[in-house]
């Protein structure tokens, strides 16, 4: 579903991604780990078509974002680290607005049911988003992905700043999406959640994928040790 083939990207001569190959299948959660500047966000931006690779290519469901950006983006959903919505809109109105940008028009009832499905409390649906916590806005982000019926979901450090219970709830939503067959690529620093949720984990350093392992391969402590070893210069 999500494929990167011999991907290269440099900024001012500094490689951000260096010969990256990865593949995320349907119904799979792939966690990208790595220190700041390892190339995780640039990889996600390549899939979104925000950044054009210098060499190699990315494919989303067989489509190259460099060639058919609009189709690729319609089949993707994206949740950034700091998801920011329109504060003077309610959760329902934000969902309606973003789905209209995706070419969908949802009824109010449909918006409400999607937000509840994403874990938002019913009494928060029609409150202004400016009063939402980060966890609540993340749930609106999940609802946007659900509404788009996205085949792939890209997340850039989605649990940073979330308290453990909110992170747990968020993981539950991700697993529900995975069970629906959505391919999920997750860039994160959260080793615990990566280990819990991901079927495969990739570790990046200096733009290269230095290790790839199955989520079940190691325990939490071993994963941490392995990660620290892998990113050491």
């Amino acid at each position: 579903m999500l494929e990167a083939e011999s991907l290269h990207k440099s900024y001012a001569g500094q490689p951000a991604i260096d010969d990256l190959n990865l593949c995320v299948g349907k119904g799979e959660i792939y966690a990208l780990l790595g220190p700041n500047g390892a190339g995780k966000t640039t990889t996600i931006n390549c899939f979104l078509g925000f950044v054009r690779p210098d060499k190699g290519r990315v494919l989303v469901n067989g489509n190259d974002p460099a060639l058919d950006n609009r189709r690729v983006r319609r089949s993707l959903a994206y949740i950034p680290e700091q998801i920011s919505l329109y504060g003077w809109f309610t959760g329902v109105e934000n969902l309606s607005y973003f789905t209209e940008l995706a070419g969908e028009r949802l009824s109010r009832q449909r918006c409400e049911s999607l937000l509840i499905e994403s874990g938002l409390e019913p009494d928060a649906l029609n409150k202004r988003v400016s009063g939402y916590s980060k966890g609540m806005t993340q749930k609106v982000g999940i609802a946007i992905a659900l509404a788009k019926e996205a085949q792939a979901l890209l997340l850039d450090e989605p649990t940073s700043g979330l308290d453990p219970s909110a992170a747990y709830e968020f993981s539950r939503s991700l697993r529900a999406l995975r069970d629906r067959g959505v391919a999920i690529l997750l860039a994160t620093h959260d080793l615990f959640r990566a280990k819990e949720d991901a079927s495969r984990i990739g570790i990046m350093r200096h733009g290269r994928l230095v290790h790839e392992l199955a989520g079940t391969e190691l325990g939490h402590a071993e994963l941490e040790g392995f990660y620290l070893e892998a990113i050491r210069d």
Binding site: L48, F50, N69, R70, R73, R74, L76, A77, Y78, I79, P80, E81, Q82, I83, S84, L85, Y86, F98, T99, L101, A102, G103, G141, I144, K148, L154
Partner: peptide, 18 residues
Amino acid sequence: ERGRAALLASQGTPLGAI
């Protein structure tokens, strides 16, 4: 500025059109 542009652009409508 508020980090919303990427979320907007990822919906499929070009930013220019927005």
